[in-house]
Structure formats: C-alpha cells, structure tokens
Design a binder for these strands. Structure first.
Lengths: 230, 230
DNA sequence: GGAAAGCAAGAGCACTGCTCTCTCAAATAC
DNA sequence: GTATTTGAGAGAGCAGTGCTCTTGCTTTCC
C-alpha cells in the first residue's frame, strides 16, 4: 500500500539487475560482470544503470551479500534437519552441504572464497556477519559436543592462546582455545578441499569427489573429537 | 656466441615484460594486468607488445609458469635443508615455506590457488608438472615414513579406492590409498589455511598467523602419522 | 496547479585487448 | 657486395569497458 507504482518499478528493475548479474557471474566469472551488458539486456542505455547501482563495486558487494545469504541458508537448512545429538552427522552434513552449494554455484563460491577482486574491498560491516554463519555452525557443533582440551592438542604460543581466549565471548559454547583451533582447522580444510576441487587443482588426481569428501570429513570428525555419525 | 644482437635484445625485452608484469600483478592483482601499460612503461607503442606476447592469456600462462617454478624452488629449497629422517620437521618446514612464499607473493598465490581467471584455461601441459612439485614433496615425506593403513583410517568407497590405486605409480613410494588420502588432506588443509589468511577470511579472528599455522601443522602431522619434529 | 524528485537518453572521456597496414633497419642468402 | 628476407616498431582503428555530465520528460508530492 505504501509504495507507489514507481517504487514497485524500481524494485523490479533492481531485482532484474541482480538476476542478470548472477547469470553473468555464472556464465563469465567475476571479471565478466559488465554493467553495460546488464543495461543492454534490460533495454536500457548504459548510463541509466547508474540510477540503480552506483558502481561496479557496489554491484559486487550486493552479489556477495546475496551469495553469503543463499550459502548460509542452504547449509543451515541442511544441518537443521539432523538430530541435535548426532554430532558426527551434523558435521558431515555441513561439509556435504558446503560442497553441494559450491558445486551448484561455482562462480559465487569463487566470489566468496577465491582471490579478492583487485582494487575492491568488501565493506566488512555488510559481509562479515553473513560470512560467519557457516563457520559458526561448525563451532556450534563443537559447543554441543562439550569437548575438553586433550593431551593430543599440540602446544600453542602464549600470544595465540591469549588471542583465542579473548574471542571466546564471540562464539557459542565458551570454547577453549584448544578446541577452537580444532574447529578452525576443520573449516579451513573443508574450504581447501572444496576450493581445490572447484579451481581444478585435483584434475588428473581425484575425480570421485563426493566419496573423497566423505572420507576426509570423517577423518576430520575424528580430529575434532566427534563421535561417528549414527 | 650463437646469438645475434637482435636475439639478445629480444630476450632482454621479453624479460623486461615479465618483470613489469609481476610488478603489475603485485600492485593491482590479476585484473590489473594490462599489456598496454607494460608497453607504455617500456616506451613502446601498444601494438608493439604483440611482437613479444601474442595475447594477454599467453602472458598469464607465462606468469603462472614462472610463479609455480619460484614457488616450487622456494619450498624444495627449505625442505631440502632438513635431515631426511626428521619426518615431522620436513612436513612442518614444507608448511611454513608454503606460507612464507604465499605471504611474500600474495598475487602469485592468488594466481596459482585462487579463483580461475574467467575465460582462461591454463594449458595443462605447461602447468601441471610445475604445480605438482609441492604436493609431491608432501607425498615424499609420507613415502619415507613408510606408513601403513591403520584402523583409524575412515572407510572409502570401492570406486575411490580403485581410483587411488591406479594413481600409485605416479607417486613416490607406492603409497596405499589410505595413506594417500592423508597426504591429500594435509595438502588441502594447508592450502585452505593459507588462502583463508591471504584472502582475508580470518580478519577479526586470528592474527597470530605463524603461531596458528605451526599449531595446525603439528596437528596435521599427527593425523598424517608422522613423529613429532625432533 | 506548481515544485521537486526520479528516470532515461545521449554524448563524451579514458581506458582495455587486439588487428591491420606501413616503414625502416638489421640479419641472412647468393 | 648486393639483394632479399625477417624482425621491430609506429599509427590508425574496432569494439568493448566504467563512469560523468547535461538535457528532457514523467511521476510524485504539497
């Protein structure tokens, strides 16, 4: 009710722009993003696009926000379907969901976890929260597992210990530094595995990707200290 | 003796081009690579650059080749200084050397392990050998450790097992599939840790990078089944 | 009804990769 | 030693990019 036809039109055009941008991203990658091409497909003259998106960088930021949201939604949705006490399966499900989303949206994955776009800094206040959702999900599993530091945890420097101690309030479950680093390793490994697959570093080595990922996720589950999926 | 002044001049210009290209890469990232800018700095007109480099893609390939070589040299040199029987330290040294090179050459790291450049496929015959040097170094450590499959190794599908079995001749030490996947996990994790640091995903979390990496490398050494560095 | 704000068009600037033609000098062949 | 081939650079030009500025029209608001 409160919105005029013009506002509706504006929102519609904006949505069209983002839709076409995602399409371009999928088809041509980050560098293929062209404001002019979007304008052309919308039947607009090139300068008109700037009524909606002030710059290419802003379009990139919008795409990153949307991608983080879709990515977080997908992984959270998958994980939420698992029984809370099946901790091993929750981790396995997170890993599989991350890969599934990445394989389905390789250009978006590259945007989120690939090389930073030159001369462009994503504004942290608009991306860090959305980007933390998946790692936080991993830490939530660790928190529910109520893990204790063990003798197997390698030593760490006092400075690192202090730093991780200071981060405790930001994370669920008051995780001790030794446990927190297990989560960081698990998430880093997952990103590494997915990125190496998507960016083609495994060509002529592994092709059985889902099986390989499951194998490694299970291994990492043991490193984390989680029970086997039941 | 066998080369004319003209050939010498050509090689010199070629070297200048690559030097400037690396500079540009460091300053502006992959997308900042501009043949015209290189020509300008060499005092050449823009078309003259094509006497030396047939296309931007070819320049990218040359940069990737050079980068893989420098990267492989750096890591191999570091690892070769460690006593052969100190297997834990060899792995730790590889990891540290990878990070050190990446931190010193972030744009090159992004070129090798970051998002693929759109519309560009590195010709495998010119990059896979150079790109395999560091992972092969990891596998060489595993080979020297003479590791056996253990009950801790997670199960894997028959298809994955077959595939890894077929790869055995390509790798040093006739590694069994269960051991090979440990190496793949270690290398993937290392890449993930380094990329997440360099690409800024750890901002506002970890800043004690060397200490954190050592901690995780030690953890991974245990997963690999290597003894502690002596 | 008049003022204000929103939207689109068009021209233009500086940049990119790349192609084509032309000229000149150096290396090679006879 | 002359003639010919080859390599290097210059210059114009094409199609594309992000982005700015001015101009005109239409919708919204008061």
């Amino acid at each position: 009710m409160t919105d005029t036809p013009r506002q509706r039109q504006h929102r519609q055009t904006m949505a069209d722009i983002l839709r076409l941008a995602h399409q371009q991203l999928a088809a041509e990658g980050t560098a293929g993003l062209s404001l002019r091409a979007i304008a052309r497909e919308l039947g607009l003259v090139s300068s008109a696009i700037y009524r909606y998106v002030p710059s290419r960088d802003e379009l990139l930021t919008l795409l990153i926000e949307e991608s983080y949201t879709a990515y977080g939604d997908a992984v959270e949705a998958a994980e939420s379907r698992i029984r809370r006490d099946d901790l091993g399966r929750r981790w396995l499900t997170i890993g599989r969901a991350v890969r599934r989303w990445a394989v389905a949206n390789p250009a978006e994955w590259a945007l989120l976890y690939g090389s930073p776009v030159p001369d462009y800094q994503a504004p942290p206040e608009r991306t860090t929260a959305a980007g933390s959702r998946v790692p936080l999900l991993v830490l939530a599993v660790l928190a529910d597992a109520d893990l204790k530091p063990s003798a197997d945890d390698p030593p760490m420097t006092a400075a690192l210990h202090r730093e991780l101690d200071r981060l405790r309030p930001q994370f669920p479950g008051d995780l001790k530094p030794e446990v927190l680093t297990r989560g960081l390793l698990a998430f880093s490994s997952l990103c590494g595995l997915v990125s190496l697959e998507l960016f083609g570093q495994f060509t002529n080595t592994v092709t059985q990707f889902p099986g390989h990922l499951d194998h490694q996720l299970t291994r990492l589950g043991a490193v984390l200290g989680l029970p086997e999926p039941s």
